[in-house]
Amino acid sequence: MSRFGITIRKLRISRRITQQELANDLFDRSELSKIEHSELTVSYENEIELIKRLSLTPDEFEYISNNYTLSFKRRLLHRFFELKISIDTADNSIADIEALLQDCFLVENDGDIGRIKTILEALLLANKPKGLDKAKKMVQPIWFDYLAKTKILTITDIYVLNTILFAFDYETANEIIAKIITVIDRDYPFKKSLKIDTLINQAMIEMLDHKFKLAADNMLKLKPLIKKLGQYDKLLVIRARIAVCQKDKTKALEQVSLLEKIEAQQLANNLKSEIKEFL
């Protein structure tokens, strides 16, 4: 029995859900039985739907399926997500990036890890003199040659795209963002924080293209959702950026000071660089 099938069956039984109830309008009961006994495979999209019907996120399902431990690949992905890297910034620890890159080389023939390797190598290149343009060219095929043609984006794909958004021109970046938001709204509505991060990146791209009023208006729309999720560090970031868009250096620096008080030093440092660049 595959891990997917046996985990679906175990969770369905533990929740006292019948095969007919779980399969409703998606499969016949007999088809679900075959899935649970590894006699039938399903598309990724239908796997996600079954997981949702069991009131789990894909990450939670994978954790349970892997006997309540994180796989080596998942640990690498979490380390990558926690770096909060972007191809246009050099604020991460070179040692952390190099260590993660070396561990990624332990995984062979995995598309996700292969793309992350490329991003990490590009980030190291971006830290070198005149390396930024070369770094951008390294990561652009991730979109043009693969993810632009992929109908169903995974959460990992979305994180990867958010990391490399700044490697593209304004129009391409917005094309990528439009696809990300469509996929999140359709397939991952529970990933509200990821949607916020994507829209914050979009506002930053608008700022870089000197569309300051548009950027400020879009960030103002984000404030209620950020407050609802209690993500006050992000709230301070967008307040600072709105102030930058409004050419209010004093107010922007006030938000930086508040970030330093809550020990969000990397965010504060990033904003100081932005204030220096724009004001």
Results as ranks from 00 to 15, higher is better:
residue 191 K to Q: 14
residue 91 D to N: 13
residue 107 V to R: 00
residue 58 P to M: 07
residue 144 F to A: 10
residue 122 A to V: 04
residue 76 L to S: 07
residue 145 D to R: 04
residue 246 Q to K: 14
residue 252 A to Y: 07
residue 3 R to S: 09
residue 106 L to D: 07
residue 247 K to S: 13
residue 209 D to Q: 13
residue 198 T to R: 01
residue 256 V to Q: 07
residue 73 K to G: 04
residue 122 A to R: 01
residue 180 I to S: 05
residue 234 K to G: 06
residue 36 E to M: 08
residue 80 F to G: 02
residue 159 Y to D: 08
residue 77 L to C: 12
residue 57 T to K: 07
residue 52 K to L: 01
residue 164 I to P: 01
residue 221 K to G: 11
residue 237 V to R: 02
residue 245 C to F: 08
residue 162 N to I: 05
residue 178 A to I: 03
residue 138 M to Q: 12
residue 152 I to Y: 07
residue 191 K to L: 14
residue 194 L to G: 06
residue 12 R to N: 10
residue 255 Q to I: 00
residue 119 I to Y: 00
residue 26 L to N: 03
residue 123 L to S: 09
residue 267 L to A: 12
residue 81 F to E: 11
residue 244 V to Y: 01
residue 130 K to C: 04
residue 16 R to A: 12
residue 228 K to D: 15
residue 185 D to V: 10
residue 204 M to E: 13
residue 84 K to H: 12
residue 201 N to H: 10
residue 137 K to V: 04
residue 85 I to V: 13
residue 6 I to C: 03
residue 61 F to I: 11
residue 224 P to L: 08
residue 37 H to R: 14
residue 113 I to M: 01
residue 116 I to A: 01
residue 43 S to A: 09
residue 231 Q to W: 15
residue 14 S to R: 06
residue 249 K to D: 13
residue 254 E to V: 11
residue 248 D to Y: 04
residue 98 E to A: 13
residue 39 E to F: 05
residue 221 K to M: 10
